[in-house]
Amino acid sequence: MTLIDLANPTKFLSLTTRVLPWLAVATAILLLVGFYQAAMAPDDYQQGATVKIMFVHVPNAWLSMFVWGVMSVAALGTLVWRHPLADVAAKAAAPIGAAFTFLALVTGALWGRPMWGTYWEWDARLTSVLILFLMYLGLMALWRAVDDPSRAARAAAILTLVGALNLPIIKFSVDWWNTLHQPASVMRMGGPSLDNAFLIPLLVMAVGFTLLFVTLHLAAMRNEILRRRVRSLQMMQASQQAA
């Protein structure tokens, strides 16, 4: 099966139906292993048990950006190649990405309460993720504002690409703004010097969550294709009744 065959929704549907159970099982196994390892991981000498929040926070934060990347690729597919599945992929990804972004925000706040003493700190990273969340919501509002799917797809594709161009600028300006207003009050994670006891569960969780996204995304794409089929059948029914 080549990429061209996937452009056919029916072929895509049959492939999805075959692949989805395996993906779901793999996701479940990875997430269970990751959860077990996260539970067994030692406490951090500074952060104590709250370091365990990082095992779910970091994968969600990673996915919040990864999903926008996926949508940007889909947007190129919509605008440049007019690929029939690209619209579907972009639309299906938006709510899932918004959910992951929301989780990144909330787990970040829950980590911040014991560590910073407040749920919400106008920390540069939290703030950028908040703006990303607002942009996801705007994109979803755009999808919901128009009932013609292909028209909405092209508008959403342009917004997605403009957003992808703007996100680094927003990140940079928020960083700058943050250092201006509260210099270095924020405790930082260890960065690349992270100990293996933390790194391995984190990696397992990150891969597990990414697979979870792929699974959910494929399932949501399948729903979207069926929804379009329903729509076109309803239109045919309406035109038959009119005739």
């Binding site: 104590g48 709250t50 929040i53 709510p95 959910a99 787990t107 829950l110 309460r113 014991p114």
Partner: peptide, 30 residues
């Protein structure tokens, strides 16, 4: 989990809940 157990448990529970909601929504929609 030490003194911060509630925060750790809440965040894991919340992640599980939202993901379950997503799965249920997608399943029902299907």
């Amino acid at each position: 989990l030490g003194p911060y157990a509630s925060f750790v448990v809440t965040s894991y529970a919340l992640v599980a809940a939202i993901i379950m909601l997503l799965i249920i929504w997608i399943g029902v929609d299907y």
